[in-house]
Simulated assay, not measured.
Amino acid sequence: MISEYSCPFLCNTEKACGNPCIRPEGCRFHWKAKKRVPCSDCGKPTASACGRCPDNTSIRVTRKTSIRDARKNFEEIMVRHRDALAKLNISLCKECLLPIKLEEGVYCDSYWPE
């Protein structure tokens, strides 16, 4: 097999792959790879739709941690999103933060405070 090109794909080390290949797009490992752009915050290569690497994405919090923090800040969440929740005619369960109808009270059916 005669290779005519050298793979131009940038690896995570920010150096070109350099593998011999027959396609100008890159070697057999990289020619169909997602195009990566620099993270808008730190500049590391990323293929995410938002343009940020996982280290700089605020959604990168475990569910347990976010629920625990949300319970502590329940009143703040309700004040911040009051208008949006009112338009939808819903509220949030005070314990599990699931959406509930306004008529149901403060807790959802799956939670019964003692």
Rank of each mutant, 00 (worst) to 15 (best):
P24Q: 12
K72I: 10
C96G: 10
E4D: 10
K64L: 09
I2M: 08
G26T: 03
E95V: 04
G43L: 00
T62A: 09
L98Y: 00
C50K: 14
Y107G: 07
R80C: 13
F9S: 02
E95G: 04
R71I: 06
F74W: 03
I67A: 08
S110G: 15
V37I: 11
Y111I: 09
E104A: 13
K101W: 03
L10Q: 14
F74P: 01
E76I: 02
F9A: 03
L92C: 01
N12C: 14
T46Q: 05
L10M: 15
R71M: 11
A70Y: 01
W112N: 11
E14R: 06
R68T: 07
W112K: 12
G26C: 00
A33P: 02
L88C: 07
K35P: 13
G18P: 00
C108H: 02
N73K: 06
A47R: 02
P38V: 08
C17Q: 00
E14W: 10
T13E: 10
T57G: 10
A70W: 00
L92N: 00
N89L: 10
V79I: 10
D41P: 07
S3Y: 12
A70T: 05
L88P: 03
H81E: 07
I2D: 11
A47D: 13
R63D: 11
Y107F: 15
N73S: 06
K64P: 04
R71K: 06
C96S: 09
C53V: 01
P8Y: 00
E14V: 07
C27K: 00
R52S: 11
E25W: 05
S58A: 12
K64H: 06
I22N: 10
R23Q: 08
T65Q: 06
G43F: 07
K101Y: 12
F74Y: 13
P99G: 00
P99D: 01
R23S: 11
G51Q: 01
I22H: 05
G105K: 14
D109P: 14
G51A: 00
K35F: 15
K87A: 08
C39S: 01
R71T: 06
E25H: 04
A49Y: 12
D83P: 02
F74H: 10
M1D: 06
C108R: 02
S40G: 12
V61S: 05
I100C: 13
R23W: 05
K64V: 05
N12M: 15
